[in-house]
Every structure is written in C-alpha cells, then in structure tokens.
Design a protein around this nucleic acid. Structure first.
Lengths: 351, 351
DNA sequence: TATTAGCACTCGGAGTTAATGAGTGCTAAC
DNA sequence: GTTAGCACTCATTAACTCCGAGTGCTAATA
C-alpha cells in the first residue's frame, strides 16, 4: 500500500516527466514547494516506488522515469480533473461556428484542430455511412455508352458512379429503370442495397426492360457502395515535436505504423463507450509500445458511431487530452446531429 | 570553352555525386574506367571547372560538388537519353490496367506511384474542372428545411451541396425550380454558372415561384462550385530518404513548405509545355534553394490541363525522373481521354 | 521511529586532443 | 600536356578527462 507521501511523489514525478521529458531526480523534486521533503526522503520513497514497479531508472545513476504501471496508476488514481483551458475552448468554438453544411468537412476539421491543440497525432474514424437509407435514385446519361448513377441518402450524402450502358439503350428505358429503382428500393440502407436489388428489382427489370441482364450487372457494379475511406488524419507530423522522437529511425517507424491504414483501424478496436486510455504495450498493435492512445466515440445519428484517437508518446499530457477529447467528441456529436436532422426538426417528427 | 575531357569529368562528377551524395575527389574519379587519367590531371581539370563555376568545394580540402550552374549544364548538355527501365514500365502499366472508372482515383494513384518509383515527393495538380458544362440539375428534398442540389457535368463529375429551402416550399415548386434550371442552364460551364443564373434564370423565378428571393440566394450558394482542392500529394515523407535531409530542421522546413498549399501551387507557375527542370534557386519560391523541381503537363480533354511536379534534392536523378515523368504524363493523358470520352467514341462524333 | 545530512560512487554528456585519411595545390620530372 | 610526388588542410572518429546530477547507504537528528 502506498503512503500519502508516496502517492504525492509518484504524481509529481509523472507530471514533471510529462512536462520536461527528462528523468526526474530526488533533489530536483525536493525543490518544488509541493514536496517539502529532503532529497533523501524523496530518494527513499522513490526507491520504494521503483521496487513496486511504478518507476524506473534509465541507468544506475539517473533520475526516475514512470513505468507503464506508473502511468496507468497515474491515469487511474492521480489525475486531477481539469476544466478546459479558456484558449482551447475558444478554438473549439470557432470550429463549430464557422461550419456550414458539410459533415465530412466538419470531421476533417475536427481532426486538424485536435492535432493543433494537442501537438499530437489525431486519427478520426468517420461514422459508418452504410446504415443510411436511400432517399432517391437518379441516372444521367453522358453519351451512348455511359451514364452516371446517383444515390442520395437521407442525410444528404450523395454517392455517384459512372457505369456502362448496354448498347442501344434508349432514354425512355433509362427512365423506366430509374422509376423501378425508386419504386422498389427507396428506404433501403446502403449495406442492404446489393441484396435488395437482387431480391426486389431483378424480376421487374426482366419483365420491363430490354437487355435486362447487361443493365443489371452494370447497375450492380454502380450501386456497390465501397467500404469507403473513413479515416481522417490530423498532425501526422506532430510526433516530431516530441523530443523523444527527434530521431530518424523512430519517426520512420511511426510513419510506417500510421501510413498503412490497417493497424490504424486496430487502434479503435474493442471500443467501450466513453474515453479509453491505452498506454504503451496496452495497445495490442505491434510496434505501439512507445505510444499511448486515447480514444473516444462520438455519435452522428442513430446507430452511427465514429471514433477519435489521439496518439502521443507515453509521456503525453493525459489530463489535458482527456478533457479536450471529451468536450470535442460531445460537441461533435451535437453538431453532427444538427447537420443531419436539421436545426429545429427532430428525427422523431420526421418519421 | 570546355575541353572534351573537362566535359567528361564534369559529367562523371555530377553522376557520382547524384549516386553517392558525397563530395567526389580526384583520386576517386581516376579509379573509374571511364576516366583513365591520373588523379593530378583530373585535379587540374576540376580546378578549372571550379574557376568556371561548375563545381564547388564544401571546404578547402574536400572533394568537389556540382554548383547550380554545374547541374544546369549537366541537365542541358550532358544528360544521356535514357529508356525507361523495364521494372518502371511494368509498374506504370499496372497503374493503367487496374483502373476502372474514376479519373480522380487515377490521378491520385499516379501521384503515389511516381513517388514510389522515384523516392521523391510528387505533387499533382488536377485538371481544372470548371470548364466542364452542366449536363443536368437535380434537387432532392431531405426534410422540411433542407435539400440537396446536384449538378452533373458532361464528363460525369457530380457536384452536390446541401442548401436551405424557404419555409413552406412545396414539392411542386421544387420541381418547377429544377425544370427552370434545366431549361435555362444546361450546357453552361461551371465557371459561368453563377453569372448565368443571375442573367437567365432570375426573372423566370420571380415570375413563377413564390419566395423567389429566398430560394434564389440559397440556390446561388448551393451552385457556387468551390475552386476545389486540386492538389494530390505522393511521398510527402520521401525526402527523409535523402541523406542530406536526415536532419530535424531541414525536414521541418520542407514540410512547412509543402503543407501550406499556396507555395505548392507556385511550383507550377510559368509552365511552358513539356518537361521543365528548375534547379535550386531557379525556383522562384522562397526556401526552395535546396530542392529541384521537375514539372510536366498532361491533358485531360480540351482546354483541361493538369501538371505534375516532382520535388527532390538538387542532387536528384534527373535522367531517370525526366524519362519517367515524360512517359507517365503521356500515358495519363491517354488514359484520361479514354475515361472522359469513352473507349470507342470520340468527342467529334458526340457533337 | 521517521527524517535528514553527509559521503562515496556511478554514469551520461560536453569538451579536448590526437590520429586518420581523403582531399587539395603546386612543382618538377617525364 | 601529363603525371608523380610532396606538403598541407580539414572533417571525422576515437580516446580521454571533467563535470554535474543522480543514486544508495550510514549515521546523526527531531
């Protein structure tokens, strides 16, 4: 069990190391007014904390550095609740004020602003749009062979794809096609679209349209909504600013880590609700031992969640980032709701 | 006037420095079979080349390094025409084979592959889409207050924007609006759209539609096609791989340079046709003294040009990059034409 | 008994020095 | 005109010293 003084010393050590990136020594700590003990006393407590695994030394006569266990304890028990700095909250406010109508823009800007405020790297996972329902189909012929298929979803998102039209297909047949699609498939969610097209519309096509087969395969391609790119990055280069990464190899491996999107996705795994902190090797992703990740989720409507991850050194400013992330993910949810459902209406009225 | 041997020595010096990034000395050069002269002879010629400003020394007893004038002379007179390496041309081929229907995708991939092949940074300026003509307008209401405006252009590009609908606006009025737009503005290029909307459609609206003013201002906003982001990057991090940039400050200033898009645009200035090489301070952009830029243009249809820039150290492999860039910009033009005008038809038939 | 002062010891980092080697210019011989 | 030879320069590297901030341990103190 830790004595009160040991708790204090652990807390001060972690804080100091977060600020300075330098191993902290007993004499240094004893100078602080918060720790009115002699260096020897602190030395003894530090030795105990080291025995218990909360602190480490980089070499025999160096100061102490928090271990992962130390950081974890700090985050779980020693974090002092913080209110958002005035400056930060002003910055955030501009983000949501300047915004007009594009939710993707809003998400992208969130990633940028978070990385600017924290000086860490942000990865934002956009909401899964595949749950949205189709509001309208449209087909615009371009020339003899090609046309654009357009799908508008109920949140105002527009998907479009160029596809090949069977030779000799007439304008009236295109009109018929669009009508069939609109009669049969409105309200279908994007994920289900392929399947429903087959179930509900195929036989109708076969009855009413020439060259139904060719058209149908083209349509299927056009309608296949790609599991689209949903990752937004902010401050990819920020890890530079951390002194422990002023090093060629370290930076290189960091970029390799985040450039290949897959591991980036892994960062979001096993998301419980709320804010999660994963320190160093607590991240199950390979080569993440040197980083901490703080994740949060936000909502962009029913059944549509996105996640935000902030990646920094293990020595990251947990208190500040947590506060910031909490505020932002909340504000972002609100803003996205407003964008999706309109300023004054509410989804329930809409139904 | 340069003697033949001096030409040879200049050429070998530049080549060697491009490969090794190390100042090249006389003894080193004399070992090469291409230069069967004694080190003293080479030393004398090098001294002359230095007097004439083609070579420089980093310090009194170092080997020689090409000056900007030296690189310029090398590029203008000593470059040996090269055929594309088999490996490179295979890589390029896959780029154009795998491609399906998206021209933006194709452009993005071009940037990536160029940066992979060269290990330099690529900036690709997409074609200016504002010359395209409107093929069709469409408006899809989302709820009481908002609707999506959709503009399809003749190349199959789809612009869309959410806008506010005046309160109490009915479905039939929206239909009328769309009809007016389609009657009056089809064929207008995107740049002219705002203006024509005012000239040709405003009075029609005022005659036929309730609340024309409110609708009109919403529409104007919705229709304003942003001078959209047309820059695609490849290998932003590649400058790392160049030994002369294994340095915190250098890399930082490089990123600052390319991150703020404006200077990046400047790189493309005063584009003559064909391939252009700008070495070090020949770039009129500030802080570009340490880089060389090779640019090329490609065409994506009538009046629609894009540019490609490859940024590397002054020590870049000019011969290879020029060949590669030449091939790619040509292939890219062809591929884009095919995408835009269809595989077998030609624009002339279309008219 | 818990804290503090004092002391010997450790180790990384900064600064100095010396050796090395690849380079140069110049002169004289070929 | 070309080359061999020589004296000189200078960046790089390794070895060495010095210094300071740190530690653990022991004995004195509150």
């Amino acid at each position: 069990m830790l004595t009160n003084r040991q708790l204090l010393i652990l807390q001060l050590t972690v804080k100091d190391f977060i600020d300075s990136a330098q191993p902290v020594g007993s004499r240094q700590l004893s100078k602080k007014p918060e720790a009115p003990f002699s260096s020897a006393t602190i030395r003894n407590d530090m030795a105990d904390l080291e025995d218990m695994g909360y602190l480490e030394k980089t070499h025999t006569s160096s100061g102490r550095v928090p271990s992962e266990k130390g950081y974890r304890f700090f985050v779980d028990h020693l974090l002092q609740p913080q209110t958002l700095a005035l400056e930060d909250s002003l910055q955030l406010r501009t983000l949501f004020q300047d915004q007009v109508g594009e939710s993707e823009e809003l998400i992208r800007n969130s990633a940028t602003i978070l990385s600017e405020l924290t000086n860490y790297t942000t990865i934002l996972l956009g909401p899964d749009t595949s749950m949205h329902a189709v509001k309208k189909f449209s087909i615009v012929p371009l020339d003899q062979q090609r046309a654009v298929a357009i799908i508008v979803t109920d949140n105002g998102h527009v998907e479009n794809r160029i596809f090949d039209v069977p030779p000799g297909f007439t304008a009236s047949e295109i009109e018929k096609t669009v009508n069939i699609l609109n009669e049969r498939l409105i309200g279908t969610s994007l994920v289900q679209l392929q399947q429903k097209l087959l179930q509900e519309a195929k036989y109708v096509f076969e009855q009413h349209i020439h060259q139904a087969e060719q058209l149908f395969s083209s349509l299927q391609q056009a309608i296949a909504v790609e599991p689209e790119e949903r990752l937004y990055f902010g401050g990819k280069l920020n890890m530079w600013k951390q002194p422990e990464f002023h090093d060629f190899q370290k930076m290189k491996s960091f970029f390799e880590l985040i450039e290949k999107g897959n591991p980036a996705m892994d960062l979001f795994q096993k998301n419980g609700q709320g804010i999660q902190v994963r320190i160093g090797s607590e991240n199950k992703v390979i080569n993440m031992e040197d980083y901490s990740v703080i994740t949060s989720t936000y909502s962009a409507g029913e059944n549509m969640e996105g996640s935000i991850a902030i990646i920094g050194p293990k020595r990251m400013d947990y208190a500040r980032v947590i506060t910031l992330l909490d505020t932002l993910s909340h504000d972002l949810s609100t803003a996205l709701h407003r964008l999706t459902f309109g300023q004054e209406t509410d989804r329930r009225q809409d139904k």
